[in-house]
Write a protein that binds this DNA or RNA. Structure first.
Length: 851
RNA sequence: GCCCGGGUGGCGGAACUGGUAGACGCGCCGGACUCAAAAUCCGGUGAUAGCGAUAUCGUGUGGGUUCGAGUCCCACCCCGGGCACCA
């Protein structure tokens, strides 16, 4: 028998699918739809194993739902703007567009080699003006609707990428892409008002039932809702214009335990005071520095600078509190000012001890005498009764919070407030390779939107990257335009959008990628929301939160009636591999090493010993990478797909091993041989076949049920295990097995492996004589009558310990089972003469004898 | 520090709502085929004791509930991830 030539066969079928437009998205809107989408790839140039795993999963769902009769939308495109293209332009003297489109061509070919059921007619790249023009138009809509504003603000400045970053793009004080230490700078920036949707983005999380709980929780924490109160304190000895201080607290009940107020270094009051206080100015400068160095921030001690200003206690005009500028108060959170109650807040306590401020407990644990309760090194943050607090004494914490807020509102010096950690989304980037912000700055008219008929504002091609900073800023002519309103000489905005904007609506564009509007409403409302979105958990906050907001913004300006873009989300695990290091410490590629007979890993070329490190996420820097192209050339796409689906649960990390891929490859060959052998046997035995094939038919239909359920539940590894088991059953068949049952088994097997091994599935389907395509065959339905056996194996226990098993007819009566079990020799031996107290019978499962 | 996950053979992992722990794969061991190797096929494979039937132990640790616990409850240990001067 010939061996299965995977590569040649795969190319053949890919061509046929393409010729027949097998994966064109159906225009028919009568059938149920299924939109499956993998997270937008950045065209880095080559796919990696993480892509293979991600797309293999999405492709299984796409093919599975297609076979089940759904209209499937499964598109692909490119998140094509971004820094790496500019870096490459600088290093290789190529234009970012050229570099990007070359990469796209390479990656498209690689993805096509995988045989993915993608509708390539819908492909687009975000760097194409026909895409980003709509982004510019939507931005202007948002601006007109009050969702966009411009503000001078402190920003996270990435000194390597020479651009600003949003808060969530700063990880451990470093830029998410460059890894550079982030600095703080004050710049004029465009912001999208994501905070206007904080409450909705939070409360709607509960409706996302098919999202991982983990991702919902991460978004919940990121939005960071808290309930509290804003309170106004009158100030004494404050600079003009700063006579009042607004603080935010979640613990208004502790107001009588207050011993100081603290404001952020960036607070206007601090700035006003610093003008005449060089020491304070120096302290503020210091605070700004420690704000950026992550190591120092980690363990920074709570420090403050006492000002001459005093705050008047809102409930006692004779009570004065010192006002500090403190390094632990953030201008961006709440009102940038707090009152400190050391007895009931650990951080305030540390501060109070350091600056020798009073520590008065006002919440007393239930049943403790207030006079006897003192605070040591730990603040008391549990529930209790209020004491030492005048009109609040005796109340619970909750009642006291309400009472203080009520009195503050009545007195006009405070109000109940809901506060969020979430901040507005700064979208200006000082980069070339992004979507230009369609704004003109006019000396007399101010900020003027580019008229929509002038869109798109396109990027100039003739730019250079030899100077650091933004090439649009350096370009000799591009930014100079006439003001659309008054005709005076004006300049274009030279900032471009954060690339997360590009990926915040692409899922909608895929519904009608050639539309003259961002998307056709009818198409978008048929296809959206995405039924199954698949990607890495690293986008749990950034991309997924932005997209949820952007969808609401599109709804607000009347483009669509939809709140949530992604109904189902799946976050897959990473692909990992062992790391190898040569004696000199250099990392080695997996194919630079070899295992000798004793299992010792050595450098293949030199025989030097290699130290083997633990399995880690594949990364170029650690060289523990395996190139998908090499794997596809060697074993074929089906085998690569099968392996990435087989070994680990999809949500967990997958360990890539040579043995693993070889095992998958052996299985591919085995399937090929098995189907041919059984097909030949059944054909030859057609007349002399024995039996009714019932046993085989039961196995077939059980497998259909199990595999279908496993795929529906995203348990691809279990689907694979069931298929292995089924193939074991088929391998053990006698040559004279009932021919019709064998035929059913083979047809079923071929369709069931289809979503994972589509090419082999087609080849075998054809080999069995079908003149249709396997992908056009409907998904088999399990016959319920064949799912149950006539007899069951029942476990026999004595005192809860397994002693024997018996075969019994299904649903055998209790009495008969009991009698049968008590008669068993092993049961009698285990009983050892003891009297039987009772017998527990779980129908069709166990019989437990209790003595 | 806070909040989530997760600890099951040599390894990746199965186990429905408490009911035969270890499916399936990898690896390993033995055998067949072969001049030999590769490939393939057959058998075995949690630990301990025993020739054996079998017995005892066994799902991170220690308790508990139950006829029966990987699964439920309490306490703890370890690993992974997320967040963090958040008032």
């Amino acid at each position: 028998m010939t061996r299965y030539n995977a590569r040649a066969t795969e190319i053949k079928w890919q061509k046929i699918w393409q010729e027949r437009h097998s994966f064109a998205t159906p225009a028919d809107r009568t059938r149920p739809k299924y939109y499956v989408l993998e997270m937008f790839p950045y065209p880095s140039g080559r796919i990696h194993m993480g892509h293979v795993r991600n797309y293999a999963m999405g492709d299984v769902m796409a093919r599975f739902r297609r076979a089940q009769g759904f209209n499937v939308l499964h598109p692909m495109g490119w998140d094509a703007f971004g820094m790496p293209a500019e870096n490459a332009a600088f290093e290789n003297k190529t234009h970012p567009a050229r570099w990007t489109y070359q990469n796209i061509d390479n990656m498209r070919r690689q993805l096509q080699d995988l045989g993915l059921a993608l509708d390539w007619d819908r492909e687009f790249a975000t760097c194409d003006p026909s895409y980003y023009r709509h982004e510019q138009a939507m931005f202007l809509d948002f601006l007109a609707d009050g969702l966009v504003y411009r503000k001078e603000s402190w920003v996270n400045w990435d000194p390597v990428d020479m651009t600003v970053l949003a808060n969530e793009q700063v990880i451990d004080g470093r830029g998410w892409r460059s890894g550079a230490l982030v600095e703080r700078r004050k710049l004029s920036q465009w912001f999208l008002k994501i905070t206007a949707y904080a409450e909705e983005l939070l409360s709607a999380l509960h409706s996302l039932e098919r999202w991982p709980a983990k991702v919902r929780l991460m978004q919940e924490n990121w939005i960071g809702r808290s309930e509290g109160a804003r309170l106004l304190f009158d100030l004494k000895a404050a600079p003009a214009g700063c006579e009042q201080l607004e603080i935010y607290t979640t613990r208004p009940d502790t107001i009588f335990g207050a011993s100081f107020c603290a404001i952020a270094a960036d607070h206007p009051l601090a700035a006003a005071l610093a003008a005449h206080d060089p020491k304070l100015a120096a302290f503020i400068a210091e605070c700004r520095q420690t704000g950026t160095s992550e190591e120092a921030l980690e363990k920074a001690e709570k420090r403050g600078h006492r000002t001459a200003v005093e705050a008047v206690h809102p409930f006692d005009p004779n009570w004065r509190l010192p006002v500090f500028v403190a390094n632990f108060v953030l201008m961006e959170y709440g009102s940038g000012a707090i009152f400190g109650c050391p007895a009931h807040d650990q951080r305030d306590l540390e501060f109070a001890r350091k600056y020798e401020l009073p520590v008065l407990p006002v919440v007393i644990p239930e049943g403790i005498d207030p006079a006897a309760f003192t605070i040591g090194d730990d603040a008391y943050v549990e529930a209790g009764r209020i004491a030492n607090s005048r009109f609040l004494d005796g109340m619970s914490v909750e009642d006291a919070k309400a009472e203080v807020t009520r009195r503050a509102e009545a007195g006009g010096f405070g109000s109940r407030t809901v506060n969020y950690r979430l901040r507005d989304w700064g979208v200006s980037r000082q980069r070339y390779w992004g979507c230009p912000i369609p704004i003109i700055h006019c000396p007399s008219c101010g900020i003027v939107p580019v008229p929509k008929q002038h869109l798109p504002v396109t990027l100039p091609d003739d730019v250079t990257f030899d100077k650091p900073g933004n090439p649009l800023e350096h370009h000799p002519t591009w930014k100079h335009v006439d003001c659309p309103q008054c005709g005076a000489k004006a300049t274009r905005e030279t900032d471009t959008f954060d690339t997360f904007i590009d990926s915040s609506w692409y899922f909608a564009r895929f519904c009608s990628p050639h539309a003259e509007t961002p998307f056709e409403r009818e198409a978008a409302e048929y296809w959206l929301p995405v039924d199954q979105y698949i990607g890495g958990v690293e986008h749990a906050i950034l991309h997924l939160l932005y997209s949820r907001f952007f969808t609401r913004a599109m709804k607000r300006v009347g483009l669509i009636s939809l709140d949530e873009p992604f109904a189902g989300l799946f976050t897959q695990g990473m692909v990992c591999h062992e790391t190898y290091r040569a004696p000199n410490g250099d990392y080695l590629l997996p194919d630079q090493v070899a295992r000798d007979d004793g299992g010792v890993v050595r450098v293949a070329a030199t025989g030097e010993s290699v130290s083997v490190g633990r399995s880690e996420k594949m990364s170029k820097s650690k060289k523990n990478v395996v190139d998908p192209s090499v794997i596809i050339d060697t074993y074929g796409a089906d085998t690569a797909r099968w392996f990435t689906l087989s070994d680990s649960p999809p949500e967990r990390d997958l360990e890539w091993t040579t043995q693993g891929i070889e095992g998958a490859w052996r299985f591919t060959q085995r399937l090929w041989r098995l189907v041919i052998t059984l097909h030949d046997n059944a054909a030859g035995a057609a007349t002399g076949a024995s039996g009714d094939g019932l046993g085989l038919r039961r196995a077939t239909h059980k497998t259909i049920a199990l595999v279908t359920k496993a795929i529906e539940d995203f348990h691809f590894n279990r689907a694979v295990a069931h298929l292995y088991e089924y193939v074991n059953t088929l391998s053990a068949l006698k040559p004279d097995e009932n021919a019709a049952a064998v035929r059913e088994a083979l047809d079923t097997l071929i369709i069931l492996i289809g979503p994972m091994m589509p090419h082999l599935s087609e080849e075998l389907w054809q080999l069995l004589g079908h003149d249709t395509l396997a992908i056009d065959a409907p998904w088999p339905k399990a016959d319920r009558a064949l799912l149950a056996d006539d007899t069951v194996t029942i476990a026999v226990q004595v005192q809860g310990k397994l002693r024997d098993t018996i075969e019994a007819p299904k649903d055998a009566p209790r009495d008969a089972l009991e009698a049968q079990v008590l008669a068993l020799e092993k049961v009698q031996r285990a009983l050892d003469g003891k009297a039987v107290k009772k017998v527990i019978v779980v129908p069709n499962r166990i019989v437990n004898v209790v003595a």
